[in-house]
Design a protein around this nucleic acid. Sequence first.
DNA 1: CATTTTTTGATTTACGTACATCAAAATTGG
DNA 2: CCAATTTTGATGTACGTAAATCAAAAAATG
Lengths: 341, 341
Amino acid sequence: MRPTVHDIAAAAGVSLATVDRVLNRRPGVRHVTREKVETAIRDLGYVRDLAAANLAKGRVYPLTFILPASDNSFMHGLNAEIRAAIARSAAERTDIRIVEVPAFDPQALVRELETVAAEKPSGVALVATDAPDVRTAVDRLVHDGIPVVTLVSDLTGSLRHHYAGVDNIAAGRTAARLLGRFLGGAKGEIAVLAGSMLVRDHRERLEGFASVTAQEFPALHLLPVLEGRDDPETAHMLIADALGKNDGIVGIYSLGAGNRGLIRALKEKAVDRALTVIAHELTVHTRAALLDGTIDAILNQDAGHEVRSAIRVLKAKADGLAVIDAQERIRLDIFLKDNLP
Amino acid sequence: MRPTVHDIAAAAGVSLATVDRVLNRRPGVRHVTREKVETAIRDLGYVRDLAAANLAKGRVYPLTFILPASDNSFMHGLNAEIRAAIARSAAERTDIRIVEVPAFDPQALVRELETVAAEKPSGVALVATDAPDVRTAVDRLVHDGIPVVTLVSDLTGSLRHHYAGVDNIAAGRTAARLLGRFLGGAKGEIAVLAGSMLVRDHRERLEGFASVTAQEFPALHLLPVLEGRDDPETAHMLIADALGKNDGIVGIYSLGAGNRGLIRALKEKAVDRALTVIAHELTVHTRAALLDGTIDAILNQDAGHEVRSAIRVLKAKADGLAVIDAQERIRLDIFLKDNLP
DNA sequence: CATTTTTTGATTTACGTACATCAAAATTGG
DNA sequence: CCAATTTTGATGTACGTAAATCAAAAAATG
């Protein structure tokens, strides 16, 4: 049997109350006594029974998720996954709240972070907009002892405890290699469709993509990035226009959202052309396009895994526990027609 | 606040003891009374607090993992992951035991299953050898109320509650498409290296691979399967021999273990040839080969995820709880040199 | 050394559930 | 209707920890 507080009280030759004072960092214990207790804890290998402690404390973990108010399939999916987690709240002792802030608006995010900080939740998860003020606001939370994880888009250089999302540079590099290999040494132009160069995840994907393309597939030439604002209509317009004007295009990398428009443009303009297309995020639209051959590969991040991972990490940090790194690593899914879930 | 047993006792107008009798299916409750209590439970939406219940019961989950005694990197890795789970036993209230049985030996597995059944564990995970007797033995366990999950290799047609492993047909299909696309319409022969056609996962991978190759890449011709017994030496010999005799080989699919030998053969015999190679299982050897270009892609199943998933599912089944299907789906990892963990 | 302050002990209640015991009430059988 | 049986209630203890209270002991201060 694992040792209990009674065992360490007996081993240290002190009372239960004193053990409790040491364990919960309450005042009123002499230095030497505290050390006796800590030694007993180490010697017996005592670890507090979290379930029992949470029961006694009536503990719940109030968690806040801050998301951009973006109207695309990916964000809807993320939202749905958080709501699914809310449905499990009772069993997981969580009390999760979702707040939405305008997208691409650092100041709005900063204000919300300040509001949230005042509520002193057990943890905060946010889809970060990459700006110095946001970094400062996040660091402030961390400094106040509130665990913070970034979701989907990271905030490097900040003190956030964890990032629950994919390595976007690796994603871009992988996309480049897949495209290059699929094209098998062909020469031509590559169109890149992004949401916005203001968000870090898109910038990083482009960076990875451009770097591998340049180094390993010199026969391919990148056209200037098209910024579709993650909006299907804009994406449609941009891609239709590019395909109309330039018939040297042999491949397309869509690294953001709004793929519905991309797919429509491909079906209209590229029926007679052999284009190789790689897109991000598995949705009903990209899935159908993969199956009918309009898209050749989909890179995906599993929103459900990201949300569950963020919750696990926030709870663990709130309790000062270690996380299983391998479990919390969000993998880049590569989907071909054959391995769709 | 969520309702407690006290609340349902009050709502049903009975005593705590009666509620307890109903909840724990103890005898001595009249039918009408039992219904009153069950109505109150439904009306208030009561769900028993598992943590408190487990605390009161002093519950632990004795789990048994049955593995083949195979000496390859993958099985070593699987073993290590289970031992890592054992290290977390205290926090997870598990009591995990590993037993090894001779590989490819259905009778030995059946005997072990019977031994294990006699110990009445809370759950059993096994790497299944595909044989009718094993199916019967597994069904027997399930019939006795013991949750069973198959690990890595499934036992279709049995009553096992869950399979913690990848879809091997999809894996084979994916390998074929990757190889076909990487070869970009080239004509030639494909060598397939397997462990043994006696294990289901290898058969399924081959089946998926052959089917996509035949349908979608008719320019590629599969050579008869080489069975390397998951052994590096045998694999080396077989591949070196094939490469020496046949210079029409343009691609290799290694769907089993023993890749150390494959890689050695490639470095000796194929320095001057442009071979496209797809292999299974990320190990130190395949990782290095991917990075130096000897292998073009690695398909992988994450042993850590499989083990953690098996444990979660067994515990949930033991408690009669639902599992989050999306969380327990073991994904096929596709690694290129750019997205290695 | 007396007094104040700090440290420690002893004890109790609580969290939500499980389980056991004994008495009281209700039901059933004859 | 009485006795035997079944059903129900009341109560207590336990799991391992948190947290509070009050008294007792020890240490520090003058």
